[in-house]
């Protein structure tokens, strides 16, 4: 195969990361510091997620990597290739067949099940960061559960836009204790965080933090009594598969403002088309 150790990282590093993961699972939503390594990719490309995936992989695993829901975009393709080369594990695009799924900014539409691990790439793990720049102070705020400031951000949203305009990286409270940044997933995905049978792991490489949600953890999106949380999406159906309940990407199709909406989860969309569902612009039997 290659001269790399299994899954690129050396065994000691993987042990160190596993310890951080176990601690994260023991304290859901708490950001565990870990000694993040330099990876052969730039920060911002998923160095945290890759390290967590490397620490979780076994030779029997089947890996799926998605980037904004798609299996075939640059980030997904290169990370998948990276683990094919360094770990030699099987890969798949089907959510139901994967044992480990590394994701950038989406939760797959197909419900996850027990035994699966979902690894998120996190750019900024600290939900309070843009409100309080001092790390010492934000740690103190987590310690003492002083989360009023998080609502100031939501207040500002309503004051300025009339509704809570935060559409991604929407802050959540885990098991009524820690406020957590769910990574920049659309808030449409927030309800899927809660009570999920899969293990959810979050890795931030540059910020050197790992946090986790064990299976069936209660996760609540923050809101106001008179402005409740709403999992929003574009008010359309998928133009290829006709799905009305999946998160959509808006695609500009010409210079005159024409556009189409397609599922951001490519595996989900392809599966529906294979099953015979056809959207507004789809052609019957055209899947794959």
């Amino acid at each position: 195969m290659s001269d790399y150790n299994f899954a690129y990282l050396d065994e000691q590093t993987k042990r160190m990361i596993r310890r951080a993961i176990l601690k994260g699972i023991a304290v859901p939503g708490y950001q565990v510091p870990f000694a993040s390594r330099e990876m052969p990719m730039p920060y911002g490309w998923g160095t945290g997620g890759v390290q967590v995936t490397a620490a979780c992989l076994t030779p029997d695993d089947r890996l799926k990597v998605i980037d904004q829901g798609a299996d075939d975009t640059t980030n997904a393709v290169s990370i998948r290739k990276f683990f094919q080369r360094t770990a030699g594990v099987a890969v798949t695009e089907a959510t139901a067949e994967a044992t480990v799924i590394q994701t950038r900014h989406r939760i797959p539409e197909t419900p996850l099940c027990e035994g699966q691990i979902l690894v998120y790439q996190v750019p900024i793990p600290e939900p309070l960061r843009f409100l309080e720049p001092r790390e010492t102070e934000t740690r103190k705020m987590h310690e003492l559960e002083e989360y009023g400031l998080m609502h100031v951000k939501l207040y500002e949203d309503i004051a300025r836009h009339g509704t809570i305009a935060t559409a991604y990286a929407y802050p959540v409270k885990v098991e009524e204790r820690y406020v957590m940044d769910p990574s920049p997933i659309p808030k449409f995905d927030n309800p899927k965080l809660s009570d999920n049978p899969a293990i959810q792991l979050f890795g931030a490489g540059r910020e050197q933090r790992i946090y986790a949600l064990p299976p069936y953890t209660q996760v609540v999106s923050l809101d106001f009594e008179d402005h409740p949380f709403e999992a929003s999406k574009a008010p359309h159906d998928c133009d290829l598969c006709g799905a009305g309940d999946s998160y959509l990407d808006e695609v500009i199709t010409d210079d005159r403002g024409s556009r189409m909406y397609v599922c951001s989860d490519t595996d989900f969309c392809a599966g529906r088309r294979a099953a015979g569902h056809v959207g507004r612009l789809g052609q019957p039997g055209a899947a794959e």
Binding site: L131, E146, G148, L149, H151, V152, Y155, E156, I158, A159, R160, F224, E225, D226, H227
Partner: peptide, 26 residues
Amino acid sequence: RMGVSAGGNVGERLMAVGARNYGTIR
């Protein structure tokens, strides 16, 4: 907090002690 509106500045302490109704805070 210079980056937060006047209303948000006044409301911060209310939210810090548990106020969760936007209309009342405002």
